[in-house]
């Protein structure tokens, strides 16, 4: 149920993101989705990849500070207002969202939203009950 996201600590200076993507490319790791949260001095790069364990190991060996975080993937209709009902479900279930990012899936007409929440299990149960598709991790890694 939980999707493994790879988070990397990056200083806010030129070439750091390029270094990460180059390394992953060399290791044949495919990036499915990414987001960056940043301050003026540093940032956190968050990645969904086809092989999280391989990416984790490669980045760690490459000298980066890396961690794996459980996030929740939810498929929502790729139409105006598609995300809002999912957020309403989480709010009703009393789940706090730490952050989220989205990408358009290859699956026809759907967008994939990745949530970091304070209670992944409760969030997944509430969304499933409300009729949302919560894809298995393997499906997310291979979209």
């Amino acid at each position: 149920m939980a999707v493994k996201q790879i988070s990397v600590f990056l200083e806010n200076k030129s070439g750091r993101l390029a270094a990460v993507t180059k390394l992953l490319g060399e290791k044949q790791v495919n990036i499915r989705a990414l987001s960056i949260a940043d301050t003026s001095d540093f940032g956190i790069l968050r990645l969904i990849v086809n092989d999280p364990d391989k990416a984790h190991k490669a980045l760690k060996e490459g000298g980066f500070t890396v961690s794996a975080t459980d996030v929740l993937a939810v498929a929502v209709p790729d139409t105006p207002g598609g995300l809002a009902p999912a957020l309403a479900v989480l709010e009703d279930a009393g789940v706090n969202i730490e952050y989220l990012y989205a990408f358009v899936a290859q699956r026809a007409g759907m967008a994939m939203v990745l949530f970091k929440v304070n209670d992944t299990e409760r969030a997944a149960a509430a969304l499933t009950k409300a009729g949302f598709s919560v894809p298995k991790p393997e499906e997310v890694y291979s979209v």
Binding site: Q5, S7, F9, A37, D38, T39, F42, I44, R46, T65, V66, S67, T69, E98, Y99, K116
Partner: peptide
Amino acid sequence: VSEDLFRDEIKGL
């Protein structure tokens, strides 16, 4: 920032 110090959230860092 070592692995022990690293947090996946900006507010944590």
